[in-house]
Every structure is written in C-alpha cells, then in structure tokens.
C-alpha cells in the first residue's frame, strides 16, 4: 500500500502550476539524449547479459524507480534514473512493471535490447520486478484463481525476459490490515512451477499497517515451509518499522515492528524496500530506525538488495526525491561500511 497522504490529488493540483513553472527552467543534462521511456537509439543486437553483483556477503544497495514517481516522464527519463543510481555507486534497480515498461505487458524487442544496454552501460543489476495481482480488476467481484494465475504468469515471463529473479508480487487485499485475498494459496501454488522454470521468486510485500509478528506473515512462512518451495518468499518494506506513522484512517491501530522482529524471517526475505520519508541535513533518516535495521542485516549476513523507496514530501518537486535518495545512500554506505 502506498501512503495515500503523499499522493493527495489536492496536493498535486496545488503544486502543479508551480511544478510546471519550475520545469520550464530546468536545464537539460547535456550528457545524455533525452527520451521519455523508450530507446534513445537502436543498439545493435547484443547478448542480453546482466552485470554481476559486486557486493556479496552483505546487503546490497539499490533503488526502486518508485522513488522518482512524481517526476518520471516529466523531468526525468528512465535513463536519467539509471544515471542517478549509477552515480550513487548503487547496483540494484527495481522497476514497477505497470509503471515503467513502455507498452506493458508487451514491450517491443527494441526496448528489451535497450533495457539490457542500459543495465550494462550503467552497471546495474535487475534486483526486483514489481508486479500486481489486481484482484478487484473487475468491478463487483474478485478475480478467480485462474485469472490471478494468468496475471502472475504473464509477469513472471516478462520479468525473466528482463533478467529479474525476484518479484515484489503485490496481492489484492480484503481488510484494513492488508490480509491477502482468500484464494492466494491456490493461485500461488499454481504459479510455483512456472516460477521455478523461470528462476523467479514471488515475494508479497509486507507493508504497514501489517506488522512482522502477525498471522499474515506466519501464514506466508508456513506456506513456504510446508511446500518447501524456493519460489515464494518475502519482501519487507521498512515502513513496518516506521516511528512516525501518518495520521490517516486505518493507521490508528498500527504499532511498529521492532528491528529484531525481522531476524527469524531473514531466510525467506529476498529483497527489502528501504522505505524512507525524510533524510535530514545531517544525513539521518528521521522516520525509521535505520542504524538498528542495517546492523541486524549485516550481522546476519543477509545479502539481498536494499531498494530505496522514497515516499515523503516533495515527490512532485523536480530533483527533490533524487536528492533524498542520494542522501539516503550516503547514510547506507556509512552503515554498511562502504564509506
């Protein structure tokens, strides 16, 4: 679930005029040909290889393009996002299938070539592929297991084609604490062989107001243990540790998880959303207990990707989110012993 308060249409409208005015003054980078989402040039057909991860044995830094939502396609191209991530010496990239792939779910082969050329040019590893089971796609009813399965399979195949091994598989929910739809086990079981065939792990996102010590998380772990599958796991969004909870309906019962609550889950955690809402001028994240969280991940030699997800004020202001992500990566470098 994305924090609705940061996405208020009212806020967007009031900032739109200022944003549009600001856009007019933005200098173009001059370095890179600009394109909204598609290829800048038609590269020669090359093998579709991805760079090798460099930072093994500890958490790896990456960025979810979600962070750039407010300006993506307006003041930043997809290549600009690649450049940003490379500039931070980060290595992982998360894209949201429905948000970032032109002509999703059927991107052109030219775009797929471009995608691989960008990964290699900027030395980025496809770390996580965000996709959805839109259970309430049809008004008035929940998708059947077959429909849900078809939706997942389409994404697994596309993710595999783009080099992703981990998916943030967002499931439809039925209540305020984000309990997944009743038939989730059925369609996930149906999809396991396809995921295995495509070397892919489906990971529902554990997101506030869900907490780590909850029946939902227990059910997911129980499913993994009972099926013995390696193709289903967890994505932990650090919002579960949030110390500053937005004052919006549905959050009043939320009591944040403690950093140590993640320890028993680590064997099943394939990626984390390094959610953050404010990097201060002294490079401290003021809304989540980052030092404690990262220390636990380092101590337990967890080596998945920490994917920055900026979700705070100013998302619609040109360059604001970019700078917040850069600040977060200074903090992460320090906490990870890279600086």
């Amino acid at each position: 679930m994305k924090n609705k308060s940061t996405f208020s249409r009212r806020g967007f409208i009031t900032s739109a005029a200022a944003g549009a005015a600001a856009i007019a003054t933005i200098p173009s980078s001059g370095l890179i040909a600009s394109s909204c989402a598609g290829p800048t040039a038609s590269p020669e057909a090359k093998p579709r290889l991805i760079p090798k991860p460099q930072f093994n044995g500890k958490p790896k830094r990456g960025v979810s393009l979600y962070s750039y939502t407010g300006v993506f396609g307006v003041t930043m191209t997809m290549e600009d996002c690649f450049i940003d991530i490379n500039d931070m010496e980060a290595e992982g990239i998360e894209i949201l299938a429905n948000g970032h792939i032109p002509n999703y779910p059927d991107p052109s082969e030219e775009w797929v070539d471009w995608w691989f050329s960008m990964l290699n040019k900027y030395n980025l590893v496809p770390a996580e592929y965000g996709h959805w089971v839109d259970s309430r796609r049809q008004a008035g009813r929940t998708l059947t297991s077959k429909e849900s399965f078809d939706m997942i399979v389409r994404d697994i195949k596309l993710a595999h084609k783009l080099g992703f091994k981990v998916g943030r598989t967002k499931l439809g929910v039925i209540d305020e604490t984000l309990t997944p739809v009743e038939n989730w086990k059925e369609f996930i079981k149906m999809a396991l062989p396809v995921a295995e065939e495509n070397d892919f792990v489906m990971c529902p996102e554990i997101h506030m107001p869900t907490v780590l010590k909850s029946k939902m998380v227990d059910d997911y772990v129980d499913f993994i243990v009972k099926t013995g599958t390696r193709n289903f796991g967890l994505n932990i969004d650090f919002g579960v540790f949030s110390t500053k909870v937005p004052n919006i309906p549905g959050m009043d019962q939320f009591k944040p998880s403690q950093p140590e609550d993640i320890i028993p889950l680590l064997p099943y955690v394939h990626a984390c959303h390094a959610k953050f809402g404010n990097m201060s001028d002294d490079l401290i994240e003021t809304t989540h207990p980052y030092p404690e969280i990262i220390k636990i991940l380092v101590d337990h030699k967890w080596e998945g990707y920490l994917l920055s997800e900026y979700e705070g004020p100013g998302m619609n202001e040109p360059e604001y989110a970019s700078d917040q992500v850069r600040r977060q990566h200074v903090m992460l470098k320090r906490l990870l012993g890279e600086a």
């Binding site: 679930m1 309430r136 209540d175």
Partner: peptide
C-alpha cells in the same frame, strides 16, 4: 480501483 488498498478505499487514488 486499487486492489492492494483496503476495500474501504478501493477507489482511493481517484475520485477525491
């Protein structure tokens, strides 16, 4: 509609 939000706010990203 937005299936990953509580049904109460299914149309939460539109219609404000």
């Amino acid at each position: 509609s937005t299936s990953y939000l509580p049904p109460r706010i299914d149309l939460g990203f539109g219609g404000e």
